[in-house]
Amino acid sequence: MHPFSYTKVSDLAGALAAGRRGGRYLAGGTMLVDLMRESVERPSVLVDISALPLGEITATAGGGLRIGALVRMAEAAAHPSVRAAFPVISQALESSASAQLRNMATIGGNIMQRTRCPYFRDVTAACNKREPGAGCAALGGFNRAHAILGASEHCAATHPSDVAVAFAALEANVHLLGPDGERSVALADFLLPPGGTPQREQAARPGELITAVEIPAHPRPLRSGYLKVRDRQSYEFALTSAAVALHLRDGVIHQAKVAAGGVGTVPWKLPAVERLLIGERPSQALWAEAAERAADGARPLEHNRFKIELLKRTVERQLRVVGDLAGGTA
């Protein structure tokens, strides 16, 4: 661990000023402090933003939700509006980390979460994300947990978040506040695939702060749920996961939102699956046919080939589970 200074800010202006001077924002600290201990992160100034007024969950006009960046994972999971409108968010959160971590970690921090790639987390290994141009030890190493989708020749690290997969499925937006004011970016555009710059993980500008994640309104009733496949039953990252939200009208699927986790360098939206579902009536055959497209474009590495089949089965399973909720499978 390297020496650093610590300052706590009480308002947004103070935070932005400290951020502009190069300070690193600290919220729950459940990831950044870990990485500092391993010398993976070496910030010289930590700006504690936990006292900022970003801890509210509010309904938006039209039926969406705005979740403040500093809402704790546990709070968001338990919030009645979240549970009522978007069970997929609650379920994703509740399948994340441990109860202790969920009590500390925030929604904004969760999106900013860095990968669990062991070569990223060990400073003696080659990692382009940590040290651009150093090479990637994972591509030829133990890459069972790595991405089959969205990888480049420079990096195949997965984005580890569960709730970001739910957010991606629901086409959430990220609200940012920076020196140049406020802006809103689609989560799909905010989290960046590695390409040639794996060190750049988000489309945030220097000093910018996440203020909220906004879930747009979706037609009601929306049935949704999250399935996480993992080696142990709690406190473990996904091998594969699926976030599914369906809206049926007169027995026909009018809206389908599907994303996958554990398989992509970013939360992986599955538009090909969604397209096959819309306008169709639920059936086992439909789920299977749609899920067959879940791994389109997948490029496996030595140890994660199984994820292609596992992803398809995960999506198929969760389509069935949510489909049954949404009005039954013929």
Partner: peptide, 11 residues
């Protein structure tokens, strides 16, 4: 202990 997996209570 995050990646060397031992059983947790849920297991």
């Amino acid at each position: 202990l995050a990646s060397y997996l031992v059983p947790v209570n849920a297991d």
